[in-house]
Every structure is written in structure tokens, then in C-alpha cells.
Design a binder for these strands. Structure first.
Lengths: 205, 205
DNA sequence: TGGATTCCATAACGGCCGGTATGTAATGTG
DNA sequence: CACATTACATACCGGCCGTTATGGAATCCA
């Protein structure tokens, strides 16, 4: 692989000997596996293949590194949540969400569970800003789903006793519960059971 | 060596100046609020009102203290999960579980969320034995619910496409998702929305 | 009263934490 | 070439971690 991936070589001084995107991906893996606080700088630098001063020069500090890793996580691993909104019915949206969550959280060899759930749950008082960031991103994602369910309601997809907001809150609870189970060692088959059961109960008008 | 038949309350030496049960309850509050790893010995001793050597003499070490706090948590805060199994129908069992979870996780002033979910999610490699303990307790609790749902199935409470095992896995996902949301600052009303929505979809034969 | 025993209080331990100072190597520019 | 600039590698910092040694205070028994 190439060491100097930067096409713009108008920079002065010694060029860096690692690829920042690749290092960030490695950092994401560590945070995803251990959580923000449990991931030590030694863990991170070891996985990223760089030294601590290089990390600080390239990413600022541990907290800034986490936020950038979270950006990468949303952009790559959570892309399915945006595709899901394009599904034709609310039921199909929900299924796309849940099956996508399984694929994201159960790829063998990779970290298990959801980085968002881990980060919102696992942080002590030190990582409050991490927790706040994750919760804010979740709220924005949830708002998009509520809007999609509003549209489905106007299309007459729900019975009268189901509101889009409540349905969204309910679906997110299932997704978060699946993340907890995936992080606790649940198998893909067990998670698929949850999805199938949820879909079997999905409201019809 | 010495026979223990006689000495029961004739303790020698200086008596301890704190109540171990009260101190354990305080420790539970700290673990519940911050998680195992994020709870420092300084946090614990401060909340318990004792010094570190007293803690070590009375409880062993941090890990042993956590396991005892988890015992207390199960005995007191999770008592509703055992009462739930006595409800007449599977639907009533599920409702008892979910309403009980709200009461346990949203009592104002107390810690939010579920200690089991926090501990299973938040622990790095250091607290692997904590994680294992929590997961094992969850499995045993889940087995009891599956058995109860088996009984409900024999009573003809479910449609054909719903199995007791899958329904239990699904209900636990909702409960865990509610715990995640409670730990992220969800209001009681939002959690009640999840419960009401779940019950609106509960399978009928 | 004089051990024996148990607990409390202070202070200290080695080790790891996130973060940095320092000196050197590699590049571009003149 | 010398110079400025940037990154590397090593070693180090103060501070907190969980844990424990030490010495004095309180109780029981003889």
C-alpha cells in the first residue's frame, strides 16, 4: 500500500508516513470494540500503527479522534439508515433498518454491537460530551424517521391507535435492544428471530 | 481449626462503625450511575461514607463489591421480574415486565437505566468477568420467561407463527432498548409510549 | 490491667492514564 | 549548500488508578 496518499504535495516539511483515513478506521475499530473510556491511548496507537505524538498532531486529542471516528462510523456503517427511508412502505423501512442493523453489528471478525449504544451507555462523567454528541446525532436520525412515518400515516398505512412518533420510539427501542444483544454475544439467528417477530406484529390498517 | 459452634455474636475486637448493607446500597447507586469501570474507589468510598481499607476489609475488592451490589440489585430492584411471571396471561406478563422496568429505571432522583445493560455494554477488557456474570444472570432470567411463555403457548395464547423463544427474545430487546433510552435521558412518557405501542401490537390468537 | 483482636485513619505503593517536551530525520526552498 | 518546516521516536510529566502497609483507637477476655 502507498504511504503517501496525499495528492497535494505542495506542503513543506517532512511528509507523514501513514494514511490518516486508514489510521482513523483503525481507531474506529478500537472505540467500537472497547468504548470511548476503555480505549486507551496505547490501544489506539498500537492499532493505528503510529506513535502518540503523531496521533496528537494529526487528530488533536482522544476526544477529537473519537468525534472523527464517529463521523466515519455514521458515513460508512450507518449508510443503510439513510437508504432505509427510501423504502416504499413504513413496514419496509422498518425491515430495512433492522436487517441493516444485523449486517452492521454481526459481520464476523468485526466489532459487535452499535457504537452509538455503546458510547451513550458506557460513558462515565468524563465522557459526557461524547454521550451528548451521540444522543444528539441519534435525535436527528430519529427525527428523519418520524418524518418518514408521518408520510406513511398520511398514506393510510397505520391504524388509528398508532402514531408515527410512538412507532419510531418503539422501533428504535428494538434496534437498541438488538445492539445490546449483539454486544452480549447474541448470534445472527437470534437477532433475526427478533426481526421476524417484530415484523409479524407490525401494525396493519 | 477452631470449632464455630459456640461463638455467634461474641465478636472480638473493635466493632465496625458503619452498616454494611447501607454501604452496599450506596455502592450500588454509584455502580448504577457510572458503570463498573467508571466508578472509582474514591467515588465509592465517598458515597459509602467509609475509607478504602474499610471497604477492602468488608467487601474484598472492587470486583467483589460489584458482584454483591449486583446481588442486591437483583433482589430489590428486579423483584418485579419474578412477580411478573405470576400474571395470568403472556400479555399481562409482558406488560408487568415493561411497566416494572419503567418504574425501576425512571424513579426520579435515582440512577437511570438498567445496571445489567450498563454493565454488559460498558465494560472493556478489564471487566470481562463482570460482563460474563451479567450475561449469565440475564440468560437465567430469560430462561424463566421462556418457560412461562411455553405455558402460555400450551394455553393457546399465541398464533402459530409465534414461538415462545422468539417472543422472549423480542420482549427482552424492547426492555433493553427502553433501558438504553432511559439511560440517554428519555422521559417516562416516552417510555410509556414504547410500552403502549408494544402492547397494541401484542399477538392475539 | 494486660494482651488479643478487630477496626479506623493516614499515607504510601507501583502502574497506567492522557498529554507533551525534546532532539533528530526528512522534505521543500533559496 | 544552509534554512525553514514538518513528522518521527524516545522519554518524560503530573495525576489518578486500585490496592496495601502502618500505627493508633476501641472492644473483649483473662
Amino acid at each position: 500500500m502507498e504511504s503517501t496518499a496525499t495528492a497535494c504535495s505542495a506542503v513543506k516539511g517532512r511528509p507523514r508516513e501513514f494514511c490518516t483515513e486508514q489510521a482513523l478506521a483503525a481507531a474506529l475499530g478500537v472505540f467500537w470494540t472497547k468504548g470511548y473510556e476503555a480505549a486507551s491511548m496505547a490501544d489506539l496507537t498500537s492499532a493505528m500503527g503510529i506513535t502518540k505524538p503523531s496521533l496528537y498532531a494529526a487528530f488533536g486529542n482522544k476526544e477529537a479522534l473519537f468525534h472523527k471516528a464517529l463521523d466515519l462510523y455514521e458515513a460508512e456503517k450507518l449508510a443503510y439508515t439513510r437508504e432505509a427511508l427510501n423504502q416504499p412502505t413504513a413496514r419496509a423501512v422498518a425491515e430495512y433498518f433492522m436487517r441493516g442493523a444485523i449486517n452492521a453489528q454481526c459481520n464476523s471478525g468485526g466489532p459487535k454491537g452499535c457504537l452509538g449504544v455503546i458510547s451513550a451507555t458506557a460513558c462515565g462523567s468524563e465522557g459526557q460530551s461524547i454521550k451528548d454528541d451521540v444522543i444528539a446525532r441519534r435525535a436527528s436520525s430519529q427525527a428523519a424517521l418520524v418524518e418518514r412515518f408521518d408520510q406513511a400515516q398520511r398514506a393510510g398505512e397505520f391504524p388509528a391507535n398508532i402514531t408515527p412518533q410512538a412507532l419510531c420510539q418503539y422501533l428504535y427501542a428494538i434496534l437498541q435492544g438488538m445492539a445490546v444483544q449483539a454486544g452480549s454475544g447474541a448470534t445472527r439467528a437470534e437477532l433475526e428471530q427478533v426481526v421476524d417477530t417484530s415484523l409479524a406484529m407490525w401494525p396493519t390498517r
